[in-house]
Design a protein around this nucleic acid. Structure first.
Lengths: 233, 233, 233, 233
DNA sequence: AATGAATGAGGCTTCATTCAT
DNA sequence: TATGAATGAAGCCTCATTCAT
């Protein structure tokens, strides 16, 4: 964590590099390849995939134009090499048993589960912000991405999340409403927070802990005041 | 409503044309100009602004490529001519007094207000879905759009919505939480519904009335079940 | 003459219009056609023939784009309609007997002839400056113009000027040097003055009468000073 | 000189290439870049800058159209890269001390100076004829060129030439007439010769040495014959 | 006679990709 | 392995010219 913060302060927004370095050791990436990815993320994120020029990426990476195409057959390959693995890591917690890494054991309560989930994914989103931006921008236009997304997220993740949701519904912690709706509500709320936090107002003073608690309270109890709460009549 | 649905079935996703035709009568658009806009919306929405070729737009519109540039000085002009006016109409209800057109009078309750708002904006989003998609995709890359968005939405709309929210907070219909957070929660939930309804699963069988009621219930009372509701302990 | 000066002061550099109006009465030009010529001269002169757009000419002339092509089949036609007649008028004095209009009778002396010639052609060049600029710019690129120029100037004019020059050579007023060289010297000197006067330094204070006398003195006696004059040794 | 003539006969009008090759060795031009310049000079000179198509230049140079833009960002850049350096070399003799390269020492007489100057600049103009043609054609329309011309020629050269002229005026070799007029006379005469020699009648049989002497005689003593020479009366 | 909407060929320029070094 | 010169297809845009009104 401390080294993490240090890295963040050194060059804000490039925290993804630690993840990438981990991969690079496994997959034997050369420094040039890393530089290319780093530059590509920056420029894809800034200008969009279509408007980004490979020549500009090469320049920013400090390599020759041709070098990019030694590592990635096409520009689209480069894009997929960036967002593909991130997509896998994005949904990693869901495909592990018992949400390893998110929860150390089986979640005691739905609230605890949601809280752990938010903390964990906020951290992830912060570290991979630029890549996620590229992913969101390009999913509508890249069938390859859409497919991978559909298979993984709408396939595996939804299945897993549905199971969890229904588990807590049976335990009475969640009201009796169609599971898809419940998932939609929670996902909307969490993503709403992430977008506000990282995209729309990244420079505000955010008290993450407090905001997460408020968002949790909203998801669980809504925003109705005493005047309309049935139980307080 | 019925004619609306008929139109939808005729050519799905081109409902915007009725809005546009209304404008065309006011602003005297020629059939060719309408065809250009129609084609541009389709192609921008499908491939993204940067990846869309003016030659393809011309072909789809059934005009010569040069004709596009008689009406719009540049490709970017064409983009702005599409999303600019839509942006204005997007926020139109917020800048009217008492939400004319959304509510006939001042809203009796926060719930009634939210319900009217959702119905109204869902209708709007449905009619302008492709343009809204273009708008969302391009806002990050087009300073001109960002500016207009910041001025209008973050300027006028937030001010208006804040006032309404605080009005109902004072009346006790909304719990005592920071207004920005409350706005974030409601906006997230509404947009979450719109996206699921129109973008992610447009082909599902949606019972809009019921979904809206459920979303309202979520926003007001949350998803906690009897096991955790404080008052039922 | 007085009206002439008045016109000059009204809008400097458009004196050609009087010549044009004279023609228009003969050739029945409509006001629109005159406006087109006027605009074309301005724009051809400013940006060059190739870089001038017919649309800009139409706009400046206050006519529709198509109207130009009712009077002139092509853009090149328009050019030729401007410079062709001016070319004829440029050499007009040479093809008249006894230089009518330049000299009232046969020239008494070579000096008198040169003086009258300079005064007369300076006046002409001043009135037709923009057209002459177009002519000089385009002669290298327009075979039609080159042909007309070769036929008229190198044909008729040179013949006439040669005759005059040799007439005065026989009378001993001009030294015994090849006639082509003599013509070259005088033409260079006269044109050199015209260019300096009208093109390079049009805003200087010019005393035309004095400058013409000095140029005459140069042509006749050169610039050698007493130290090298043979006769003054 | 002989090799020079040989080159001229091989491909007429491309003598500039020797100058360019000298530069290319210093500035490391590739053969393709030289071919592009060569083709551009030819075509700009033939059709004028505006009417020249980069596609035609590429074809004549034997390269792909895109290659031009690797070396020159824009078509205008290509133009400036051709005429800019030539402009510098055009005035080079004037900015050197004592006219190095034109005169070996300080000029003994005004006549000797003028003779050396004519020989030297005729040689230069012959070698750079096409580029000079482009320069003259485009100066009125290219502010960048006009500026450079004004700064260099009207700035440095005039100053230098004025000094020389006044030097010889003091020595009595030049008559007492305003210096600007004297400069105009000489420049007109020299340029008149160059144009006749290279532009108007390049195919005549020219005896350069004799023509230069005659032109010198004209500049110094004029064309008046014995009948009107004051001193011979 | 005059218009101006429409055309489409052609202009300049960009850029992903290749390949000889 | 890495380079970067070279490519040429494709992109955006201009403009002379036509033609129905």
């Amino acid at each position: 964590m401390e080294t993490d913060n240090a890295a963040e302060q050194q060059h804000e927004g490039e925290q993804w590099i630690e993840e990438l370095l981990a991969i690079s050791q496994e997959e034997k990436m050369t420094p040039k390849q890393i530089a290319i990815l780093e530059a590509a993320i920056e420029i894809f994120s800034d200008k969009g995939y279509s408007a980004a020029a490979t020549s500009e990426i090469a320049q920013k990476a400090g390599v020759a134009e041709g070098t990019i195409f030694r590592y990635y057959k096409t520009k689209k390959d480069l894009l997929l090499s960036i967002v593909g693995p991130t997509m896998s890591r994005m949904i990693a917690p869901f495909v592990m048993r018992n949400f390893d890494g998110v929860l150390d054991g089986p979640p005691e309560s739905y609230e605890a589960f949601l809280r752990a989930f938010m903390v964990n994914r906020l951290e992830f989103a912060r570290k991979n912000f630029k890549i996620l931006k590229i992913l969101i921008q390009e999913i509508p236009f890249q069938p390859a991405l859409r497919e991978q997304f559909a298979e993984n997220v709408l396939g595996q993740v939804l299945e897993r999340v549905t199971a969890i949701t229904e588990h807590f519904k049976e335990k009475g912690e969640i009201i009796d409403m169609p599971t898809p709706a419940i998932i939609r509500f929670t996902v909307s709320s969490v993503i709403g927070y992430l977008l506000a936090r990282l995209l729309f107002l990244p420079d505000s003073d955010w008290n993450d802990e407090e905001e997460i608690e408020q968002t949790l309270a909203f998801m669980l109890y809504g925003i109705s005041g005493p005047a309309v709460r049935p139980e307080t009549k």
